[in-house]
Design a protein around this nucleic acid. Structure first.
Lengths: 141, 141
DNA sequence: GGCATGTTCAACCATCCGGTTGACTGATGG
DNA sequence: CCATCAGTCAACCGGATGGTTGAACATGCC
């Protein structure tokens, strides 16, 4: 009973993690993080053929990590972080045993939130036991 | 981008994401999340041979996701969340933070490393537009 | 010693993955 | 119209993966 055994979700996680398990594809995502790009421009910095990069892009599309928008003869690639959010939620479930606590990020967020007091008290999820959003010691003014 | 092109970290991310891209291995991790287990007990619920599961375990070990401790003739498997933490940090950067935030994070870390907590003057720190505002509903796998 | 238990090793097989090249379709524009 | 640019398709190749089986170590117990 501990396993919901949701095959759809499992398949999506398969696709997302498999797509992320390649430095070229992660680099593509990093590029698209800054701006939408055409396929040819995505392929430009890589030392491989265009079809190879196009394959990588199609892997990312099938994983739901990017969307493609064909306009004229160029097809634009655009990041779609929804699928990634689901996978990151899976990882957070493991982080519950011990807070993710990646160095600096938490303090960065604390700093940002300190200057901009987001109502995190109300947004504090009661379910996940203490990941972020708890009243962590904020060492920033 | 400020990508340092760290090949070691890239290889680690490769291994971790590739290890996660398999439902059997994710299930193994979920089992070990509750308790340490022997290899045979890990393999018990799966409908495949013991060597197959042992291979999956060795993939997880090589990815740094679990540790093995051979005591007597049974080898105990234990979750090791460090590697997962690094990968989840990578995903957090994409899934929940926007591009501007990455730059902000870089500046923040740079400033902190410099021991100089100064806010960038006039730089108009890009406040994270709804970082925690996302209705992040972490659910168990 | 002898035997059962826990785990790994070694071949072997089918399939997938990442890359190539070459031909192909389709929109742009002189 | 014809050349060119953007991108895909198809076939192919080498190597990694995921699974099997059968044998080989080890160790614990009688």
């Amino acid at each position: 009973m501990e396993t919901p055994a949701d095959p759809v979700r499992e398949a999506r996680l398969d696709a997302v993690f498999a797509a992320l398990a390649d430095p070229t594809r992660r680099a593509i995502l990093a590029m698209l993080l800054e701006d939408d790009m055409a396929v040819t421009d995505v392929a430009a910095p890589f030392d491989m053929s265009l079809p190879a990069v196009a394959k990588h892009i199609s892997v990312l599309v099938r994983a739901g990590l990017i969307r493609q928008d064909r306009r004229g003869r160029v097809t634009w690639c655009q990041l779609d972080p929804d699928a990634l959010r689901e996978a990151s939620g899976w990882m957070l479930a493991f982080g519950q045993i011990d807070a993710i606590d990646l160095d600096g990020l938490e303090r960065f967020l604390a700093a940002e939130l300190a200057g901009d007091m987001v109502a995190e008290a109300g947004g504090a999820a009661p379910g996940p036991p203490g990941y972020l959003g708890k009243d962590e010691e904020v060492s920033l003014p």
